[in-house]
Design a protein around this nucleic acid. Structure first.
Lengths: 253, 253
DNA sequence: GGTATAATAGACCGACGGTCGAATTCGACC
DNA sequence: GGTCGAATTCGACCGTCGGTCTATTATACC
């Protein structure tokens, strides 16, 4: 076996890239370390030179996600023309945008794999993301309270609720995909639109705003997301039961 | 090894009991099947006679939890004298009561173990519990909307939010315990009381009720819970780093 | 008492995450 | 350009894991 040496940062990023792809498509638990190093074309020793454990790899991946997410909203945070409500709305809109664009691998194999297997992965990502976003949201809400836009006594608590709603949306979408037929799909889409509207109004009221102030997404955006994904997965994944892991040996179900 | 035969239902419950204790104290992932069968005094063969897999054991455990929780609120559901708001409040009060009383093992070893390791376990329990409780909450809210007590267009969504708040409280409590010193503790308690009040008001407003209608817990209940737990754990668990699993062999960290 | 079936035991399996010492390459300094 | 220590890479190896399998014993029923 020829020995290949790359710049440490490159190797590390490569490992993260392949790990991300495998974790998203097959789940953290089911994608083995051997899968990851095989995909990355690297030996065990090399892997453990960069990461202390499989867990540490997960941690690093979650951090990278959070960092990217934070970078994605930097423009909104820096915009001096936005008032707190405008900033909050921009943030929510960006967050839904990110849900569509990032991690297309996950969406591609959504129906069979999403829920149970990616639990751990998403929890870690959300944990890291929350840690980054919580202070930002808190500051926005605090400013809004100060200038009289928002009325609440607990900015931290409201920030948590905002993030909860974000996660819950993700959950509900996942549940809808798990459903199945196209007829179910249509019902699910309507339920989701309704849910988004509910979250908007709930936030309005929690923040003491007139109904209709908070806008998570334009009407119809759920349908746009879901139909887009559906056609993607029809092309890429098909109905194959084969998980297609790069294993030398088969694995029992 | 002498051969012991017990009534099947007894064995099954015993296995669930020991699994529950081990899963709660050490986490689903870190408590191995060998740990479980050693604690229960049963062979591998016997275990796999009752459960198809470790995963199935987790599933059964979650279902048992959900069943017990449901039984715990049956009186509230059957009470014909309660109006929707009274029933919802009674349910929320009972839920917080249950959080204190059930699973004392978990509370006893809270600070070191709770969060990361029980992720999977709690997710399954919550999944099972949600499946049981969701229709109940939906029906209560639906009735409240019908008789004009509540004002919302999405009972299912509101029910989800109620359950989310329940989970979030659990999360926030966990985070507080992870803290440490008694000084932190006091700050954490105040933060929690504030959070509970926020959830109350948030639900009031989401349901279109006057502020102060929803009562999750009397003022001071958070402190009561946390100080009670603290003295328990001081007696039972101490500061030992030894995890005390019934292993024949040591396990690397 | 025989016999089918449920229950139990535990040796065994392949895969897993992780460790380790040896081998190779790189960068800095002379 | 030779030398040397650190960084990097390799892959055989380890103990444990969840799970399978065969054998054996208890139980229920005829």
């Amino acid at each position: 076996m020829p020995r290949i040496i790359k710049h440490p940062d490159i190797r590390r990023e490569e490992l993260l890239d392949h790990a991300q792809a495998l974790f998203l498509t097959h789940g953290y638990d089911k994608a083995s370390l051997n899968d990851v190093i095989a995909a990355a074309g690297v030996s065990k020793g090399a892997f453990y030179h960069y990461f202390a454990s499989k867990e540490a790899l997960l941690e690093a991946l979650a951090e990278r996600f959070a960092r990217q997410a934070l970078a994605g909203v930097q423009k909104i945070l820096d915009d001096p023309d936005l008032d707190p409500l405008g900033r909050l709305n921009a943030l929510l809109a960006q967050s839904r945008q990110a849900k569509i664009e990032t991690a297309p691998e996950a969406w591609a194999l959504f129906e069979t794999l999403f829920r149970a297997e990616n639990l751990v992965l998403f929890h870690r990502i959300n944990l890291a993301a929350s840690k980054s976003f919580s202070p930002i949201l808190v500051e926005i809400i605090r400013q809004g309270v100060e200038d009289g836009t928002f009325r609440t006594f607990d900015p931290e608590g409201v920030a948590d609720i905002v993030m909860q709603f974000g996660l819950a949306t993700h959950d509900v979408v996942a549940k809808a995909f798990a459903g199945g037929s196209d007829a179910d799909m249509d019902i699910a889409i309507q339920a989701l639109e309704r849910r988004v509207r509910l979250y908007e109004i709930a936030l309005d009221r929690i923040l003491g705003l007139p109904d209709g102030s908070i806008r998570i997404g334009e009407p119809g955006y759920v349908r746009a997301v879901m139909t887009a994904r559906r056609s993607n997965s029809a092309v890429g994944a098909g109905a194959s039961k084969d998980r297609g892991l790069p294993h030398a040996h088969s694995r029992r179900p």
